Computed example of a mutant assay.
Amino acid sequence: MHASPHFTPKGWALFALLALVWGMPYLFIAEAVETFSPAAVVGIRTLGAAILLLPFALKQRALRPALRRWPWVLAFGAVEMAGPFVLLAHAEQTLASGLTGLFVATVPLFATAIAVARGDRGALKPTRAIGLALGFGGVAIVALGSGALDGHISVVAIGEVLLVAVCYAIAPFIVARHLPDVPSLGVITLSLGAVGLVYTPIGFATTTEPPTARSLTGIILLTVLCTAVAFIAFFALIAEVGPVKAPLMTYLHPVVAIALGMLVRGEPLTAGLMIGFPVVLVGCLLAAGVFTRGQKPSATAPAVEIPASAVR
C-alpha cells in the first residue's frame, strides 16, 4: 500500500486520534502510581500491550525477523521502554503530568545534539542551532517558573524526565543502524514482551497496597488505549500518509498533557509553563528542521527518525 502524499480524511482522523491518545499517558501514569509501584505500572503496561499486539505481529509474520536480531531488539527495548517507563512512573509520583509531557517533548533537542556529535553538519544550520538554544532555554524557564528553585517541584524528577528524553532520542539511532529492515511491529511486540516479563514480577513484589479504582482505570487505559490501540492506529497512519508526516502529531502531545493535567488532576498553569511552553515548542520545531526548506522534518517524541520508536 502506497502512502498518500497528502492527508486524506482518514489520515486526519487517525492524526487527531493519535495526537490525543499519545498525549494521555502522562495523566494515566500519574493516576496509576497513586497505588501501583513504578515497576508494576511498567510491567502491566508492557506485558499487557505485548499480549494484545501479539496476534497482529503473528498475522504479519513480524516476529521471526525481530527474533533474528534479538540482541538489538533487547537493546532498543532497554533504551526505549525499560529505562524510560520506570523513570517516568517514578518522576510522576511528585511531578505534574502536564510538566512531564512538556519535558518529554524535548526529544528533538537531544536528537539534534546527538546528530551533531555523530558528525551531522546539517544539524548545525543556523535555524536548527537557534532552535536548540530556544528549546533548552524554554525548559529552564518552565523549570524555574514552576518552582524548581524553591522546592515546589523536584529537581530530581525533572532530571529523570529529561533523561527519558535522552533515551528516546538515542533509541531511533539503534533502529536506524541495527534494525532498519526489521518490521516495526515485530520489534515493538518483542521488546514490550521482554520488558514486561522482567518488570511484572518486580511490580507485584513492590506494590504493597490495594489499587484504587482510579489507579486501576489509569493502568488499563495506559495499556490498552495508549499502547496497543495507539500502535495499531499509528501503523495505519503511516500507511495512509507516510512515515515522515505520521509522527508530526507528536508536536501536539504537550498541549494535550497539560490540558488533561489541569482538567482532571487540577494541576496549576504556572507562569513558567505559560511563558516557557511556546518557547520549547518553537525551539523543537526549529531544531527538528520543520521550517528548513527542502529538508524533511525529524519527528519529535515519540519518534525522531524511525516509526518503531514511537512507543510512549
Results as ranks from 00 to 15, higher is better:
Tyr26Glu: 06
Val290Trp: 10
Ala230Ile: 11
Glu240Trp: 15
Val244Thr: 15
Ile153Val: 12
Leu102His: 11
Ala13Trp: 07
Ile114Phe: 14
Thr8Val: 04
Tyr168Leu: 13
Arg61Tyr: 02
Pro302Ala: 07
Glu305Phe: 07
Ile238Arg: 15
Gln60Val: 00
Arg68Met: 11
Phe291Lys: 05
Ala96Gln: 14
Pro268Gln: 04
Ala49Arg: 01
Leu237Trp: 15
Ala288Met: 01
Val280Cys: 08
Val166Thr: 05
Tyr251Cys: 05
Lys10Asn: 06
Leu222Phe: 06
Thr292Leu: 06
Met249Ala: 12
Ile275Ser: 02
Gly261Gln: 11
Gly159Lys: 04
Leu221Ile: 13
Gly203Ala: 12
Cys167Leu: 07
Ile141Pro: 11
Pro25Tyr: 02
Phe15Thr: 03
Val164Ala: 09
Met262Phe: 15
Ile188Asn: 09
Glu305Lys: 02
Ala32Lys: 02
His253Val: 10
Phe234Asp: 13
Ala140Val: 15
Met24Pro: 04
Leu225Ala: 12
Leu74Ile: 09
Ala310Leu: 03
Glu240Gln: 15
Gly145Ile: 12
Gly276Asp: 09
Ile232Arg: 09
Leu17His: 01
Ile258Tyr: 07
Gly276Ile: 10
Leu222Gln: 04
Phe28Pro: 03
Ile232Trp: 11
Ala89Gln: 11
Pro247Ile: 11
Val79Cys: 01
Leu222Cys: 02
Val42Glu: 06
Phe85Thr: 10
Ala236Pro: 07
Pro243Cys: 13
Pro302Val: 05
Ala66Val: 12
Val164Pro: 09
Val255Trp: 09
Trp70Ala: 10
Leu281Lys: 01
Ala89Cys: 11
Ala78Val: 12
Arg177Glu: 08
Ser215Glu: 08
Ala169Glu: 02
Pro126Tyr: 05
Gly151Ser: 08
Ile51Arg: 00
Gly193Ile: 03
Ala299His: 07
Gln295Lys: 01
Ala62Pro: 12
Thr270Gln: 00
Ile51His: 00
Leu58His: 01
Leu260Ile: 15
Ser4Asp: 08
Val195Arg: 00
Phe231Thr: 11
Pro278Trp: 09
Leu134Ser: 10
Leu102Tyr: 08
Glu240Asp: 15
Pro180Cys: 14
Leu132Gly: 10
Val198Thr: 04
Ser97Gly: 14
Tyr168Gln: 08
Gln60Ala: 10
Pro211Val: 12
Ala169Asp: 07
Ala213Met: 12
Ala303Gln: 10
Ala19Pro: 04
Val41Phe: 09
Val166Lys: 01
Leu216Gly: 14
Tyr251Ile: 03
Val41Cys: 07
Val198Glu: 04
Glu240Asn: 14
Gly283Pro: 06
Gly101Val: 11
Leu216Asp: 13
Ala111Arg: 06
Leu192Ile: 06
His178Asn: 09
Ala89Pro: 09
Leu162Trp: 06
Phe103Gly: 12
Leu192Tyr: 04
Phe235Thr: 14
Thr8Gln: 05
Ala49Met: 03
Trp22Arg: 00
Trp72Glu: 05
Thr292Cys: 03
Glu31Arg: 04
Val195Leu: 00
Pro243Ile: 14
Val282Ser: 04
Trp22Phe: 02
